[in-house]
Design a protein around this nucleic acid. Structure first.
Lengths: 354, 354
DNA sequence: GCTCACTACCCAATCGTTTGGGTAGTGAGG
DNA sequence: CCTCACTACCCAAACGATTGGGTAGTGAGC
């Protein structure tokens, strides 16, 4: 590419070199239909472009956005990037933003409303063109404020009624798991439901419960345990489920792979062999699921695409379009952790049906 | 905070409102020793600051950096953010940058030299003040180019001789594992070594081999298998190791937790019980290690701190200081996957000693 | 009464682009 | 020959902040 640091050569330099006015150069290099029209003679335009390429001219985005009031910057706020799910979504964002010539800031809020606010202010003070919010809380009061302040934004990962969002169809995902576990003969199930303020966990749980009940099953409130989304959260939740004396479920649905992995750990320490004594199904089908010593059944959510769609939606908003929320379809991946026909055969299934 | 979108009120507005000159306001709000000195009367300063707070003034960073030639922006390039190790390091960066009033761009290079270059150019065209490079390849020709172009940068995660870096002491980490496995009685070990262009894997492998040999052990070249850093990479590598007919090691050191998890999966499908038939040790002690059905021994590396240190180093460079590379100390965490005294008792150890 | 040193400000140029509005020069049409 | 419509440019004012260099006004010192 260039052998010099960008910024060393300006529009003015180019103009001087060619004996043109900076504005002419600007129109040639950055104009649209302008160029074809009255901007410059084709031969001049050629000269300009050649020189620009030769000296490695790249426009100063600071100067440009000072003038245009557009930074071509998007802000992304996630609970934590060390959550693989959000990291993958961000990869999708990174890609799509890049394709559209935008750059992104991403910051962690740790799901703390104070930090959320602070990071948002930082992004706005950086003059981002819009925000992608991946850590929306169901009470969502910040969002109203953003709307009032006319900040363009969309939600990702978690959804909230009334705002545009890019998510997985979590309700459907939950339903798929319910159907699967029911088909496998499970009648007594528990749910590790995630944080109550996150639509992901809430919707997955709701989808599961609705379908399970529609099939004729029962799920008492006590079978739903709220938890953090990480491994320790899942471990703790599963522990409390398995410790319960009056009933011990034959299957656990964790709304997140990491919680599921934690649950596997807990099952282990209770002397239960996952996939034989206890079925566990996770959500998101992260790259780990299939590789675990006992492969984890999981609902594959198109995380990467969710990130891409979020960018598309936001660009739509910036463009003044009326955008609609997008719910991408999940797919259930059944593996050893919940496939009772796998080695135990039919007897296990019937045994479980009691 | 403010109830209006940042950017709506400028320095000029403040000045007009107060009957002062913009430059005076600027000096009051952003000056250092200036303020105390001849900038303005204390009472005026007070008035300015009050109004600024009241109307929610926040300086336009684009305008500022256009003038100052400093963006307070740092660029971070990592192989992939969906690698938990890099994600955690980035969290450290995010924090430390925030503390120092910097913002960061982070981009994925997928360890592809072409993308690496492209992302770098994007960051430079955004006029970042400096770069943190988390995906350096040992052949490192881009780095020389950066040096030549006088771009301030530091390395993180991976190190390369001659450049400032923030890393874990990988050589020591490898040595710790060698010592541990030796103490456990293992004499026949294999290494899943990661990508040959990454110093992390190379140094961990080298540290391991050196110590193991110093203790009197032997490690043939064939016992070292290069691989990708993810679970599938580990799976494939372990598979080829375990498939080997002439020797089957009693222990495997994977230079990365994810590779180790993949190796566990492979061991499983070879009918080996990890922790009894085969010891496996990983690296980084990611949050998963301790939660796995069979808890994974791993070398804890201070990933979060590595990110923080990287920022500190880079700020040092920006400040014109001569900075030194920092190697943070690793700690070995022994768990079930390699603790033979755990349940099998002494017999297993001696059996393995042959 | 004059100089000197402050104090408390103001002025204007500048950073690199963009953009609405000119304006010389040319050729065609009447 | 004059007008008109182009073509191919140029001019200058922004955008919002920073910064080196003024300069009135005041009080002290001699």
């Amino acid at each position: 590419m260039t052998d010099i640091r960008p910024g060393s050569v300006t529009l003015k330099d180019l103009a001087a070199e060619l004996g043109l006015h900076p504005s002419t150069v600007s129109r040639i290099l950055h104009g649209k239909a302008d160029t074809a029209r009255g901007a410059a003679a084709p031969v001049t335009a050629e000269r300009v472009r050649d020189l620009a390429k030769k000296v490695g001219y790249s426009p100063d985005p600071q100067a440009t956005s000072l003038r245009t009031r557009r930074t071509h910057l998007l802000g992304v706020i996630v609970p934590r990037l060390s959550d693989l799910v959000l990291a993958v979504m961000y990869e999708g964002i990174d890609e799509a933003a890049d394709d559209a010539n935008y750059s992104t800031f991403v910051m962690n809020s740790r799901d703390d409303t104070l930090i959320q606010r602070r990071k948002m202010e930082i992004m706005l003070s950086r003059r981002v063109d819009g925000l992608i919010i991946g850590d929306a809380h169901l009470d969502g009061n910040i969002l109203d404020e953003l709307t009032e302040r006319k900040v363009p934004f969309v939600l990702m990962n978690r959804t909230i009624a009334g705002f545009a969002s890019a998510t997985c169809d979590d309700t459907l995902g939950g339903a798929l798991v319910a159907q699967h576990l029911w088909d496998q003969g499970h009648r007594d199930v528990s749910i590790i439901a995630g944080e109550p303020y996150a639509s992901t966990g809430v919707d997955r749980t709701h989808g599961f419960v609705s379908r399970f009940r529609a099939l004729g099953g029962t799920i008492p409130e006590s079978a739903i345990v709220w938890s953090r989304f990480d491994t320790t959260g899942g471990h703790t939740a599963a522990d409390s489920i398995l410790r319960g004396t009056h009933r011990r479920p034959s299957a656990i649905f964790a709304v997140n792979d990491f919680a599921a992995i934690g649950a596997m750990g807990a099952a282990n320490s209770h002397g239960l062999h996952v996939g034989r004594d206890l079925a566990i199904v996770g959500f998101n089908d992260t790259s780990l699921a299939a590789q675990l010593p006992i492969a984890l059944s999981s609902v594959r959510s198109p995380m990467h695409d969710i990130g891409r769609v979020a960018v598309k939606l936001l660009l739509g908003v910036l463009n003044g379009d009326a955008v609609e929320s997008v719910k991408l379809a999940p797919v259930l991946c059944v593996r050893d952790s919940s496939d009772f026909t796998w080695e135990a055969g039919q007897e296990a299934v019937t045994a479980r049906q009691r």
